[in-house]
């Protein structure tokens, strides 16, 4: 006997079944993933985490050094063409920091740029790079952060221009310009090259400053690491591709390694400003082997001909004597 069910109802049924099946599969996947992540969750290695925390430069951005703020308590001003952002408190304080965060919350923030309440983070938080880190590395960083002293410091609101100040704008932006997921090793390349790629791209987030951006603040992919005259705080950021004329193609591997260790340029000058901080807080604290790996990777980048010149100051912009 024909079941007393209409055609459309049948179709709806099978749709439900399909949704149910998909739901079941993703629930299972989540379970498996959770089980998989379990061992590293339990054993977040704080010592290993400290090394990665340094390599990733979390401290500098999340500490208001200028106003003698507490470490990781946030409040540092980050000026961008879209306005001023203030880093939040990421100390383990339960109320004003991230003390109540689960491992999954932490991974979601770094991997997907999504807050525990589901809202999007602005990409001034360099999660478009950190997304490339492994779960284990993220959780080791969390383990380290949770060994640091909690500080009660309430977050400052950002002062940004519309639409860049609204989180609703970030969703569509991410859909266009952001691909989440751990960096995939290139099996055709050496282990050292792959380690270097991981440190430069995911952890060290060098491209966040060294790659020029378009009007919407998205990195220009064909200008990878080619420098910009519109860097953080309106400063210039040099071209670090191996182009011999406009990049660092004439630096020896030794010179580049030395630079990441001490800040000395081949001509005897010393890096200051943002790069001085990167060297102090990150690259100089890495092992020699890791610096070598970064150098190997950097020297393998495609050369881009892009001369970065300081913007000629118009007379009005020259500093006035007070």
């Amino acid at each position: 006997m024909e079941p007393a069910i209409s055609h459309s109802a049948k179709r709806r049924n099978s749709l439900f079944a399909r949704i149910f099946r998909v739901g079941l599969i993703s629930a299972l996947t989540a379970l498996i993933a959770a089980a998989w992540a379990q061992p590293s969750t339990a054993a977040g290695d704080a010592a290993r985490g400290k090394y990665l925390f340094d390599a990733a430069g979390c401290l500098g951005c999340h500490t208001d050094i200028k106003n003698k703020g507490n470490p990781l308590a946030g409040g540092r001003e980050l000026k961008t063409p879209f306005g001023a952002y203030y880093s939040p408190n990421i100390t383990p304080d339960a109320d004003s920091g991230i003390g109540k965060w689960s491992d999954a919350d932490f991974i979601r923030a770094l991997r997907n740029g999504v807050a525990p309440n589901g809202s999007h983070y602005f990409p001034v938080f360099p999660y478009p790079s950190y997304t490339g880190m492994t779960d284990k590395d993220m959780l080791d960083i969390k383990a380290y952060i949770f060994t640091t002293p909690p500080h009660k410091t309430v977050n400052k609101p950002h002062r940004t221009l519309p639409p860049f100040g609204t989180r609703l704008f970030v969703g569509p932006w991410k859909a266009l310009h952001f691909t989440p997921g751990p960096l995939q090793p290139d099996p055709a390349k050496s282990a050292q090259w792959n380690r270097g790629a991981y440190l430069v791209r995911a952890v060290g987030h060098c491209a966040e400053c060294h790659t020029p951006r378009n009007l919407l603040g998205a990195k220009k992919t064909d200008m990878d690491m080619a420098g910009t005259a519109d860097g953080p705080d309106g400063g210039t950021v040099p071209n670090i591709t191996p182009d011999r004329k406009t990049g660092i193609g004439r630096w020896s591997a030794d010179e580049l390694e030395d630079f990441l260790d001490s800040g000395m340029l081949p001509d005897g000058d010393f890096a200051g400003s943002d790069m001085g901080d990167v060297i102090d807080q990150s690259t100089s604290r890495l092992s020699k082997a890791d610096r070598k790996a970064m150098v190997e990777y950097l020297r393998s980048l495609p050369a881009v001909d892009n001369r970065i010149e300081a913007k000629k100051k118009s007379p009005a912009k020259i500093k006035k004597k007070k």
Binding site: T236, D261, G263, F270, S273, D274, S284, K311
Partner: peptide
């Protein structure tokens, strides 16, 4: 040589020298 670079040159350029604009 390294110590001088870090504690003198780098230590002054970081806080007291403006980036190229």
């Amino acid at each position: 040589f390294k110590a001088m670079g870090k504690n003198a040159c780098g230590a002054c350029h970081k806080p007291f020298r403006e980036k190229k604009k």
